[in-house]
Amino acid sequence: MTFKLIINGKTLKGETTTEAVDAATAEKVLKQYANDNGIDGEWTYDDATKTFTVTE
C-alpha cells in the first residue's frame, strides 16, 4: 500500500510517499524521514486517504 506524508513545516513544506504493509510501518518510516529532515510537530492520520500530516 502507498502512504502519503504531507509536511507543513516552518522551513520545509511538501509531500512524500512510502510503500508499506500497514499504517504502523508507514508511520515509523515517515516519522524517521521527518526526523532526519528536522521536522517536529503534531501528527495526524486519515485512514480513508492513507495520508499522514505533520504540522510544525
Rank of each mutant, 00 (worst) to 15 (best):
L5S: 00
T53S: 06
A24G: 11
T18Q: 05
D36A: 15
T55P: 01
M1K: 09
D36W: 06
I7F: 15
M1V: 13
V54Q: 01
T51H: 03
N35K: 11
A26P: 00
Y45I: 01
L12V: 14
D40R: 12
Y33F: 14
A34P: 01
G9H: 14
D40F: 14
T17S: 15
E19M: 15
D40E: 13
L30S: 01
Y33W: 14
L5R: 00
T17Y: 14
D47M: 10
I7D: 02
A20I: 03
K28F: 08
T25Q: 12
D46Q: 04
K50Y: 10
Y33T: 03
A34G: 03
D46Y: 04
L5C: 04
G41N: 01
A26F: 01
T11W: 14
L30P: 00
G9N: 08
T49A: 09
E42C: 06
A34W: 03
T11I: 14
Q32S: 09
D36S: 11
V54M: 05
E19K: 15
E56R: 04
N37S: 07
V54E: 00
K50I: 03
G14C: 07
M1C: 07
E15T: 09
M1L: 12
V54S: 02
K13G: 07
G41Y: 02
K13H: 12
E19N: 14
T16S: 07
D46R: 03
I6L: 09
L5A: 02
E56C: 05
G9R: 05
L30H: 03
T44Q: 08
T55S: 09
D47R: 08
M1E: 14
A24H: 13
T16M: 12
F52Q: 00
K13Q: 12
A48K: 13
E19W: 14
T18W: 10
D46V: 05
T53V: 12
E42T: 15
F3H: 02
K50P: 00
A26W: 01
T11H: 13
N8I: 15
V54A: 03
G9I: 14
I39Y: 05
T25K: 07
L5G: 01
G9T: 15
D22V: 02
A20R: 03
A24S: 11
W43H: 00
A26T: 00
K4T: 13
T49V: 07
G41D: 02
W43R: 00
D40I: 13
E19G: 05
A34F: 02
W43Y: 03
T53A: 05
V29K: 11
K10Y: 15
D22W: 03
I6S: 04
T18K: 04
E56N: 05
T44K: 10
